[in-house]
Design a protein around this nucleic acid. Structure first.
Lengths: 245, 245
DNA sequence: TCTCATTGTTTCATTATGAATCAATAGTAT
DNA sequence: ATACTATTGATTCATAATGAAACAATGAGA
């Protein structure tokens, strides 16, 4: 079956089962090797990359739809999700399907809701969909050319994430089960885009009282073995529920 | 023309000119007499109140549509607007139009974008629409029963406003051209829902350097005449553009 | 065993914050 | 007129948070 035919087939399904005019785009953040990354797809035959996204089915809530899309592209469930913006300009995506008939689902006008997700990158397996040939983690500080307004959507998500970081703890969703203090600090530095003083960061995090120190340090690396920590879920959630730090 | 007929007539217009499935609800905040208020409408024959809202026309951006809705209900233009959330649950509003045919525009499923607006309440004239008999400022701390999920939408807007207040200046859009320090403090206290120490508030605001003191104080009240201030637009915008205070 | 880079923790100076105080003043009562 | 009073303007002092730096601890490798 040709790609064109498949899109037309899907168009019919969406016209039947999905809610018109509404789409969802997910900015999936992961953190690995001191780099903050975003999960991006590259369409077959295209140079530019795009965000994993999709449509809202008639029997789903918006958040259910976002979780479904995330699950399809990453296999991850129970993900931290946050709706950070709405992108409702004219001619966001319509021109992308110029070659098709105007009745094509994809060629309609869509208002897209931006959700960002925070995931443990090491526990996620990126999966291409039938229209893409690549699905990869790309660093946010070296984003490639992106389709439509997806570059703007990523930037907006990043701003929203930074604001969240300024008055809520972050890390539970982005780090593995156990981690070291330098790793946590590196995560903060990467998201904020600035260096932080080691001692002050240590003191501040300790005061938040959201970490539980494990008995064993992480041995094996050169130099002093750093302590391993995990988050105290209860305290972490308590901190999350407060409006300000 | 009966009300029912008019709704059916409007339904036809919306089916033709509006974008399906997408609606907009505006939480318009105003401040007057030490009270933070929200602009609400009451439908004819209903007890409960609702937010000013509407639909997105095919030739508008989302923000244009929000501004149009605001203009129709308040006459105000060049308003501070912020998209604070998306409400996309199932059965948000469909059941409200039970009495009508399923093809009625209003009876479809809608995902609504929440915009909050900050306005100088004294410079705004609330205007009813053809389906409402009242359009009034009601205090946020004594909200009446509200239709559908509009109560949740107001609460979410308020939380978003408080977060904004914690790292951006606020007041330019909510206060008259000139105002006194106690008035500004009262605005902050009202939004945050807590009392603030007078001297500390004074010191903090002064350090932000966003106020210009006028030559004349506000005479006429009992007791000491307070200084009048206006915002230094340039400094205010600079503060707004910074991510954190 | 020694060295070294890194991590863990504390110290000290500076700045911000909380609470209280003193000064100024416009209207009010006498 | 004069004193009084409630309110506003501004500052002080104690306390807490922050920034910058130092010292201590330690595991790997020479």
């Amino acid at each position: 079956m040709k790609k064109d035919d498949r899109i037309i087939e899907l168009s019919k399904i969406f016209w039947e089962k999905a809610v018109p005019s509404v789409s969802i785009d997910c900015v999936v953040f992961g953190f690995h090797n001191d780099s903050l990354n975003v999960l991006l797809l590259r369409m077959k035959g295209e140079e530019a990359w795009m965000l994993p996204g999709g449509y809202l089915f008639k029997d789903e809530s918006m958040e259910d739809a976002a979780r479904r899309i995330l699950y399809e592209r990453s296999g991850a469930e129970r993900i931290f999700l946050h709706a950070f913006g709405i992108f409702g300009g004219l001619n966001r995506s319509e021109s992308f399907f110029d070659a098709y008939d105007d009745t094509l689902w994809h060629k309609q006008r869509f208002v897209t809701a931006g959700y960002y997700a925070l995931v443990d990158q090491t526990a996620v397996t990126p999966a291409i969909d039938e229209f893409s040939d690549r699905c990869e983690w790309l660093p946010v500080d070296q984003l490639p050319a992106m389709l439509m307004d997806h570059g703007l959507i990523v930037q907006t998500a990043l701003t929203s994430l930074r604001e969240q970081l300024s008055h809520k703890p972050i890390g539970y969703n982005l780090l593995p089960e156990t981690f070291t203090m330098p790793e946590l600090q590196s995560l903060y530095e990467t998201i904020l885009g600035e260096q932080l003083n080691r001692g002050n960061f240590y003191r501040k995090i300790m005061r938040y009282n959201i970490l539980i120190k494990l008995d064993e340090p992480r041995k094996g690396g050169a130099h002093k073995a750093p302590n391993l920590y995990r988050f105290d879920e209860e305290q972490y959630k308590k901190a999350l529920s407060q409006v300000y730090w």
